[in-house]
Simulated scan of single mutants.
Amino acid sequence: MSLLSLEDVRTDIGQYAVLHCISLEVPEGGVFVLLGRNGAGKTTTLRSIMGLWRPKAGAIRFQGEVISGLHTAEIARKGIAYVPENMGIFGGLTVEENLVLATEKGKFDPDRLARIYGLFPALEQFWTKQAWSLSGGQKQMLAVARAIVEPRALILIDEPTKGLAPSIVAAMAEAFRDIARTTTILLVEQNFHFAKSLGRDMAVIEDGRVVHSGTMAGFAADAELQNRLLGLAT
């Protein structure tokens, strides 16, 4: 059984149909990458899963249970976290306060906090600094740390490398590999080099539909398919 499945999901935004009967199977474990050109419907897919935009038709199942139609807070309590493209952190709060808000009971599990420090040492260094003062890469680290401060079965991450320096992208890749050992990641990413270095399975969305799915290794080996679906130069 898949950890997450979308079955003929349709999501409208206003009068426009953005997702057209999209079906997707995300297995448990590792990194599943959702690829596609700008405007294909990748972010809408993540927001539909998280309940931020409610599907008009179809079903979304998580661990076999239908979650489409639930409120976002209910979906989060079932073990799904979301790191949006805009990161969703609170600039006027400190690193510590941002993480406290993401905990269930307002206090940290010492082992999880130690793991966060190990993955993102800068967050320990800037623990008492307000989030607005962090660099773009450090803000992204904080956004991901908020997602793992409590145990999660699935993390949805939208464009985490956008605008980041290559050294930060490399550090983020290492952190994601570590996180994916215990938590499934559904990743939306335009940086194909980053995506193929992490992904085990993948799918391509075009005009709100899944037009290809399979292993990342197979897709990465097919330059013609990459060019046709993503416009990547061979």
Rank of each mutant, 00 (worst) to 15 (best):
A175Q: 12
L186G: 02
M216L: 06
F194I: 01
Q140R: 12
E206V: 08
A171S: 15
H212C: 06
G214V: 02
S213L: 07
L164V: 10
D158E: 08
M216D: 06
H212T: 03
R200C: 02
G208T: 01
A170G: 08
T182D: 13
V204L: 04
I185G: 09
G214K: 11
T161I: 11
L198M: 04
A165E: 13
V204Q: 02
T182H: 12
Q138K: 11
V210T: 14
D178K: 11
P166Y: 13
R177I: 13
G137N: 07
F194N: 08
A221W: 09
A143E: 12
M216C: 14
V188T: 03
R209A: 12
E159G: 10
V144P: 08
I148Y: 13
M141R: 05
A180T: 03
F192I: 09
V188S: 06
G214W: 03
L187P: 05
V211I: 12
I157L: 12
V204N: 01
K162W: 15
V188Q: 00
L187T: 04
F194H: 06
V211M: 05
A147L: 01
I185H: 00
P151A: 03
F176Q: 07
V210Q: 00
F194K: 08
R152H: 08
L187Y: 11
A143I: 05
D201S: 14
R146A: 03
T182Q: 14
A217S: 15
V210I: 11
V204G: 02
I157P: 14
E159A: 08
G199R: 03
N191P: 04
L198I: 09
A180R: 02
A180F: 02
E174Y: 07
S213E: 15
T215I: 08
I205L: 06
A165L: 04
D158F: 10
R177V: 06
S133F: 06
Q190E: 14
I148W: 05
A221D: 15
R177Q: 10
S167F: 15
G208N: 06
I185A: 09
A165M: 14
W132Q: 14
T161V: 13
V149P: 11
K162L: 15
K139H: 02
M216Q: 01
L186F: 11
A217L: 10
L186D: 07
A173I: 01
E189W: 07
L154K: 07
L134A: 07
V188R: 01
D178Y: 04
L198R: 02
E159S: 04
A221H: 02
G163D: 07
L154C: 00
V211D: 05
P160Y: 09
P160E: 07
W132F: 15
P151S: 06
G136V: 09
S133N: 13
